[in-house]
Design a binder for these strands. Structure first.
Length: 303
DNA sequence: TAAGATAAGAGGGACAT
DNA sequence: ATGTCAGTCTTATCTTA
């Protein structure tokens, strides 16, 4: 799934935050702060806006879908976002405004109300998490996107909101290469890791998301700074990980464990006196895991 | 005290039934 | 849909240097 957002930062009509997001697939606009969904595409810009030709032509402002041919995975709103008729011709101005009124009604109809409430709850929690986990806006927006899709598919029903939200957040982190573990997320929202994990897998399956495997190197800096390791050790560990990657002994292993073991091995090679325990604590894995990976690395790399 | 070894148990993926 | 199996990680405990 393509998570492409543009025109971030315009003001939400409901909560006032500058966090409107455009979904390039469906062309919908919604608020990353409170979840408010807007289907209009011109009026939303605020009362001070004038309708010059530039504004209408400027695709980056109106959030025109980049690919109308892209299938929507059954998630499109009842009234589609493209201002074109069935033959692909643009609608007349009169028709356009009519359709847009209908879309507005569509988004306000009763069907959306519980969804709406769910959103507010989820997004206020998300706002709290943002600060706690030091997350970027991009990650938050992706989370909002994923969560909204999950909600539309009815995946939240029967599951806890924080659980699914946490899963969406974790997915967003994975997707954006932000090194946050399932443990980080689950401990912050007070949901068992197991549950978040289950929701996460569900999201991957149901929303057809493709997540890259986290590069252990991403975790290295974090562990190294927590355990106060030297620059030299870090560099050495980096080459170890790269070599390990080439030998294909990294698949299926916990990236965090691998990164921790590489750092430990590097410490030993560099003659630094760092215990397994310190690194294990910093990495959030057990000493045993480090030992196992450490052994594997040593054998495979003939050190 | 740090590191290594061993064992039991949980959770999930692959695969067959 | 359900059960089994191999592999991974965690926790706990004991031994070794």
């Amino acid at each position: 799934m393509v998570l492409q957002t543009i025109n971030i930062g315009s003001r939400c009509a409901r909560c006032g935050k500058e966090s409107m997001i455009t979904d390039n697939v469906t062309g919908e606009r919604f608020c990353g702060g409170c979840g408010y969904v807007i289907i209009e595409r011109i009026e939303e810009s605020g009362p001070e806006r004038t309708f010059s030709k530039d504004d209408i032509d400027n695709k980056s402002r109106t959030g025109s879908p980049t690919s109308l041919a892209m299938h929507d995975m059954g998630l499109a709103t009842i009234i589609g976002p493209a201002n074109k008729d069935s033959t692909g011709k643009p609608l007349t101005a009169a028709m356009k405004s009519t359709i847009e009124r209908l879309r507005t009604w569509d988004s306000r109809s009763q069907v959306h109300e519980p969804v709406d409430r769910n959103f507010r709850q989820a997004f206020s929690e998300l706002d709290r998490l943002k600060g706690k986990l030091a997350l970027s806006n991009v990650v938050i927006e992706k989370t909002a996107y994923i969560y909204r899709k999950a909600l539309e598919k009815g995946l939240v029903r029967g599951r806890s909101i924080p659980g699914v939200l946490g899963a969406a957040l974790y997915a967003a982190c994975r997707d954006g290469g932000t090194p946050r573990t399932l443990n980080d997320v689950s401990s912050e929202i007070n949901v068992k890791r197991k549950d978040v994990s289950r929701c996460y897998r569900l999201l991957l399956k149901e929303l057809d998301l493709k997540m890259p495997v986290v590069d252990p190197i991403k975790y290295m800096a974090r562990i190294a700074s927590k355990a106060e390791l030297t620059e030299k050790v870090k560099r050495r560990a980096l080459t170890i990980l790269q070599d390990a990657n080439k030998m294909e002994i990294t698949s299926g292993k916990d990236p965090m464990g691998l990164a921790a073991a590489a750092l430990y091995l590097s410490c030993v090679l560099c003659g630094e006196n760092t215990t397994q325990k310190v690194i294990a604590m910093a990495a959030g894995v057990t000493e045993v895991t480090i030992r196992n990976r450490y052994k594997g690395l040593k054998e495979s790399l003939k050190i």
